[in-house]
């Protein structure tokens, strides 16, 4: 058996052990997400417009991540609407930043891997970079908005008379803890992914200026920062979505 198969079986057993039926559903969700990501890259390589592929798959990935293995209810709905809004804002930021920073394709550090390959493939690497950045932030945005929504729905249910101002205040204080831990998740995975590259930089005595302008470093840092911005934005967006829903409900109640 290959290493991947054995690890996959171990993960499946571990998720069953730790999460029971919920763990099973989460495992299936993970497999579905893999299928979607793989399909995205194949479709993009066919030359289908990246934004179309990414948008459709992003929405499906958000549905799977938020509704699989979670209590389905008001908090999941709030989390889903929040992530859609945040992802839309983030995409509006990703496209100009990727065009500005020009971090598409491969850097000089990749030269060895590119030997013998045809680089003129008729697909814009800038588009691929945008697709990659959009998909990579989905997990972080979904995770943060589920955590925010779960906390805030609980507060609204426990305290129906809470004023908008107090509600926002509590929302921000819940958000503070979520951001603290989510930033660690993002930045540690950034270090983990680039440890080889950092050692390369150190061995070849790159200056700080060279690192800041390095294509691969800049590309990965932009991916991490975009995810971080997505996480921070879930705080005000969740609060706004919940207040909007509350006021709409109150208006309806008044009319009746």
């Amino acid at each position: 058996m290959s290493t991947m198969t054995v690890l996959l079986i171990i993960l499946f057993l571990a998720m069953l052990l730790a999460g029971g039926s919920k763990g099973f559903v989460a495992f299936i969700g993970l497999l579905c997400n893999f299928g979607l990501v793989f399909m995205s890259v194949v479709l993009i390589s066919f030359g289908i417009p990246y934004l179309l592929v990414t948008l459709i798959n992003a929405i499906i990935i958000l549905v799977i991540t938020i509704y699989f293995g979670n209590e389905q209810g008001r908090n999941a709905d709030v989390a889903f609407v929040t992530s859609l809004i945040v992802v839309a804002i983030v995409i509006a930021l990703i496209i100009p930043v990727e065009h500005w920073a020009q971090v598409q394709g491969f850097g000089p550090e990749n030269t060895e891997d590119l030997e013998g390959m045809s680089l003129q493939i008729g697909v814009k690497f800038l588009d691929i970079s945008c697709a990659m950045t959009i998909l990579s932030c989905l997990g972080a945005v979904a995770e943060a908005s589920v955590a925010m929504a779960t906390g805030l729905v609980e507060i609204q249910d426990h305290n129906t008379q809470i004023s908008d101002k107090d509600f926002s205040y509590i929302g921000v204080s819940i958000g503070k803890e979520i951001v603290g831990t989510a930033f660690n998740t993002l930045f540690f995975s950034f270090y983990g992914e680039l440890v080889g590259l950092f050692i390369w930089f150190a061995r070849l005595h790159y200056s700080i200026g060279m690192v800041m302008n390095d294509k691969i470093f800049a590309s990965e840092l932009i991916m991490t920062l975009i995810s971080a911005i997505g996480v921070v934005l879930t705080i005000p967006v969740t609060i706004a979505v919940m207040l909007y829903l509350k006021h709409r409900k109150m208006k309806k109640a008044k009319r009746e």
Binding site: M15, G29, T65, V146
Partner: peptide
């Protein structure tokens, strides 16, 4: 158990999306 699924997805999407440029290049070759 309700947090672990989304958290696994965070890392999974980051690690796998990072392979996109090389994947497209390989598929097109």
């Amino acid at each position: 158990r309700s947090i672990m699924g989304p958290l696994i997805n965070v890392l999974f999407l980051i690690f796998v999306a990072g392979t996109f440029p090389m994947m497209v290049l390989f598929l097109r070759n």
